[in-house]
Design a protein around this nucleic acid. Structure first.
Length: 906
DNA sequence: CGATTTGGGCTTTTT
DNA sequence: GCCCAAATCG
């Protein structure tokens, strides 16, 4: 076991009481939580009894990787680790609802942009009109109001104007009718079930043991209710957080939850981790000089205990007369610090700092614009999320033009110009063919909706006109570090495909003329500020570039070099914005603790604290007067200056420091794959690149939902058998009815598919009834840890275990509802993935792999050879490394392959 | 020094 | 269209 401080040790070993860990910045809290989970496992608790909540998916990935690493070292024989839950509260709620209340299986979650589309489409039914809110104009406010009504707490609900809750009721009813959740509903439904659904409660109780809540300072009232209910059902609770880092209060988190935890829960032991291992004593001192000005905080200190050594000049606080000078200073320091010797850990060798070690933290995105401009001029590579320039790109304008042409807004010549400007290698001849294709589909009211499919229009058109990677420059794109111009264009085309996907999710079935008019409006008014350039979303790759991010986004991260520019009054702390329109619709006085929605100086100081504590060593704070509003120094500037380490120096150039060749940190990024991603990759690496890297989506179709409906029905049948509840043949129709969901089918198609599904399920039931007693697992989660930070997740349809001629025989089964027989061999090969997962789950080898065709009602089975498994393991590892390193095929030369846009077209 | 006019900006983000 | 902070007026 690694060395832990006495305090850390105390936290790790407190297992039989509820626990509050107040962890200051850089105190190794992820390590402590992970080790504590290992200690729980060591007592013999099964992994399924442990739940760990994190705030973001990213944090969940990191925590999971850490736990697996420790587990491998200290408990290598642990089985069923996939049954431990490590993830966000939202997805735990969604999982629980779908696992234990089968009718939720067919539900899906609308993200922000799809929800807006949904609200606008259904604005009459959902009660927007009743609140005198206008379609399109007030959508955002309506959605915010619906969230507030569910996430806030009211002094007395009876005082809230009834029309508000009536609108909420209508809104939720319409969402449910279409089998959609919004993000809040996932949690509020879960709370409701946890409080009043006895069957649900007993199933959760069976699985509950230990609950760990990370970043507890940022939970909101609904999330706190989840924690409270799990506690009531018998969970041992451990909350971890830092009240000084409560920064999301404007979306409902409240500092009281963590500060008063010990009085709100019974038998709580409290541990404070006060040692900061991340930063130099100087960074810690600056942070303390600022945060101690807050009055509302738990009493605690922060001690620098790390190995990073302060050297004079690591921390500068410079004031300039213009923003241009300030930005020039940042650029100068980036260039001077690049190559300065730096040690990541006490026991690693030194390396030269690189661009990717540096971050610029902004309070508002507007501030970033001038920095981006200056960086581009100076040739500093950078990445930024939060600025949505997608629609300024030529390839996106050209894609938009396809639909303008289909609605007769522009003529043929204009459309052709758009594409020819993009690349002179797009020939006139091909463009004519593309236009001919579009002419067959010009919008008119009698087109059959399934033939008026935007995704097909888009992908077919760019295919026909000959858009291929090799017609665009392969040199690095001037603004996208690590990506060629061709790749940037394809990423953005992929993003356009995603836009179509989002739109058609809501509007697929609409009347053609209405659909295209709405789409063009959506592109003009809504999509422009909701989609970023596609290449920015590549999660598999971290380029060597300076990151520009908001302070909020930087939570939980750390960097050797941190820039905090713009330390002006009215910027940090920010000026209170005027005219909060949401409050025109609901009276502030109705809401308990309404002040949290109006952050004040102490809230802003916590942001400043988060910004400072991201730094391991170098911290460059600066300011310059910026216009009338931001002419004066921020109050935080004078606080920071109280630290003797933060002084001004305009000519320090770090030439006295030891230099090494710039090299990025050697930590390999963790990669999380799932079985369907891997299957796609095995099928065709180029198509994988299209779908997973560039983001191209497939089109819908009237028949979508058939396979899923049957799948869900079989899951319920199998699961209930496992529970000892025999579903009778008479119960089948009602059971199936619960799961049928064909969102894009017209009534005739819906009827025929329902009949077909009923037939398939009945036949399956009749011919497999005798087999049900052999089911070992149904819809079982599995997880494969291949080391090197490669993690594969998946779900197996069915596992049977039966006694056959005196030996136990284990079969892994995958259901198929289409009859593409030629895919069988490819798929059965890939079922070896599941065999690996089965071994990780139970420690045993499976004997057979089976694909069960539900349409033909026939199984196709093959014997598993254990020597195949090592080959498969190696194959996955190589694939993961190819994906991580972007060593993907530039082309696909298999003429039978279904992938699109082959560089060499057969 | 208090009252009045003028000018500029209109977050932040997770699921 | 509205609100706040800075500038200017009296």
């Amino acid at each position: 076991m690694p060395n832990y401080t006495p305090r850390q040790q105390e936290a790790i070993s407190t297992l039989n009481r509820n626990l509050q860990i107040i962890a200051c910045a850089g105190s190794g809290k992820t390590q402590v939580i992970s080790q504590r989970i290992i200690e729980i496992l060591k007592t013999g608790v099964h992994p399924s009894k442990i739940i760990a909540f994190t705030y973001t998916e990213k944090a969940a990935g990191e925590l999971q990787a850490r736990i697996l690493k420790l587990c491998k070292e200290q408990l290598p024989d642990t089985q069923g680790i996939a049954d431990m839950y490590v993830g966000t509260i939202h997805s735990w709620c969604l999982n629980a609802l779908q696992e234990y209340k089968y009718e939720y299986q067919k539900f899906s979650v609308l993200d922000e942009i799809k929800l807006k589309l949904f609200v606008d489409k259904n604005f009459k039914q959902i009660g927007m009109q009743d609140l005198s809110m206008e379609r399109f104009k007030d959508t955002g406010r309506f959605v915010a109001l619906m969230s507030l009504l569910r996430e806030a707490q009211f002094h007395n609900r009876d005082d809230v104007p009834p029309n508000l809750f009536e609108a909420l009721h209508k809104y939720e009813t319409v969402l449910r009718k279409h089998c959609y959740f919004d993000f809040t509903m996932i949690m509020s439904d879960a709370v409701h079930c946890l409080q009043s659904d006895e069957n649900f409660r007993s199933k959760i109780t069976r699985d509950i043991g230990y609950l760990i809540v990370d970043e507890y300072q940022d939970v909101n009232p609904v999330q706190e209710s989840i924690v409270r209910e799990l506690y009531n059902l018998g969970a041992n609770i451990c909350v971890v957080g830092d009240d000084d880092q409560t920064i999301f209060q404007w979306r409902g988190s409240h500092i009281n939850y963590i500060q008063q935890f010990t009085t709100r829960y019974d038998n709580v032991h409290s541990v404070t981790l006060e040692d900061n291992f991340r930063s130099t004593n100087a960074v810690v001192d600056v942070a303390i000089k600022s945060i101690t000005n807050n009055t509302v905080r738990l009493p605690k200190v922060m001690n620098a205990k790390g190995f990073q050594q302060y050297e004079r000049g690591d921390i500068l606080y410079n004031q300039f007369t213009s923003v241009a000078d300030e930005n020039a200073f940042i650029i100068e320091k980036i260039n001077q610090l690049r190559g300065v010797a730096f040690k990541d850990k006490e026991d690693t060798t030194e390396r030269g700092l690189n661009y990717s070690d540096m971050v610029v933290l902004v309070r508002k995105w507007k501030k970033a614009e001038a920095i981006v401009e200056a960086f581009t001029q100076a040739g500093i590579p950078f990445v930024i999320t939060g600025i949505n320039n997608l629609f300024q790109r030529l390839e996106v304008r050209a894609s938009q033009a396809i639909f303008q042409y289909l609605y007769n807004q522009i003529d043929k010549g204009v459309l052709k110009d758009y594409w020819q400007n993009l690349s002179p290698l797009i020939t006139d001849e091909n463009l004519e063919k593309g236009v001919d294709f579009l002419d067959k589909h010009i919008a008119n009211s009698n087109s059959y909706y399934e033939r008026f499919d935007f995704q097909t229009f888009f992908t077919d058109f760019i295919d026909i006109i000959g858009v291929r990677e090799d017609i665009f420059p392969s040199e690095e794109h001037p603004e996208a570090v690590g990506y060629s111009t061709a790749e940037v264009i394809f990423y953005n085309l992929g993003m356009f495909s995603k836009i179509i996907y989002d739109f058609e999710t809501i509007y697929y079935k609409s009347d053609p003329l209405y659909k295209i008019a709405t789409f063009l409006n959506f592109l003009t008014y809504s999509a422009t500020d909701n989609y970023s350039e596609g290449w920015l979303n590549n999660t598999y790759k971290t380029p060597n570039a300076v990151q520009i991010m908001s302070i909020y986004q930087s939570k939980g991260l750390e960097f050797p070099v941190v820039f905090v520019p713009g330390l002006n009054k009215n910027y940090l702390p920010t000026k209170q914005p005027g005219g909060k329109q949401l409050w025109h619709h609901i009276d502030k006085v109705l809401i308990i603790d309404v002040d949290r929605y109006f952050p004040g100086e102490e809230d802003e100081r916590r942001l400043m604290y988060v910004a400072i504590t991201r730094s391991k060593k170098f911290l460059m704070i600066s300011r310059a007067p910026d216009g009338r509003q931001q002419g004066k120094e921020s109050i935080f500037g004078s606080e920071v200056r109280k630290s003797t380490y933060a002084f001004s120096s305009l000519d320090r150039d770090y030439s006295e420091r030891a230099k090494l060749p710039p090299a990025s940190s050697l930590e390999i990024a963790n990669i999380s794959l799932n079985f369907s991603l891997l299957k796609a990759f095995f099928d065709c690496p180029y198509r994988f690149k299209f779908e997973s890297f560039y983001g191209f989506q497939s089109s819908f179709g009237a028949r979508i939902g058939y396979g899923a409906s049957i799948h869900h029905a079989l899951m319920e049948i199998h699961r209930e058998f496992l529970e000892g509840n025999i579903i009778t043949k008479e119960q089948l129709p009602a059971l199936l009815q619960k799961h049928l969901h064909f969102p894009y089918a017209i009534p005739t198609i819906e009827q025929s598919m329902s009949d077909k599904a009923e037939q398939a399920v009945n036949i399956y039931y009749d011919s497999n009834l005798n087999e049900f007693k052999n089911i070992e697992y149904a819809e079982q989660d599995i997880q494969l840890d291949l080391g090197d930070g490669i993690l594969v997740n998946g779900k197996m349809d069915l596992i049977k275990k039966k006694n056959q001629d005196g030996t136990v025989e284990k079969t892994i089964i995958d259901f198929k509802s289409t009859e593409k027989a030629q895919e069988y061999l490819a798929t059965i090969d890939q079922l070896q993935l599941y065999a690996l997962g089965y071994k990780a789950l139970t420690g045993e080898n499976a004997d057979f792999l089976e694909i069960y065709n539900l349409d033909k009602n026939e199984p196709y089975r093959t014997e598993l050879s254990t020597k195949d498994l090592d080959t498969m393991k190696e194959k996955i590892r190589n694939s993961a490394n190819d994906i991580r390193g972007n060593n993907l095929e530039k082309t696909c030369n298999d003429p039978t392959c279904a992938c699109r846009f082959k560089t060499t077209k057969k």
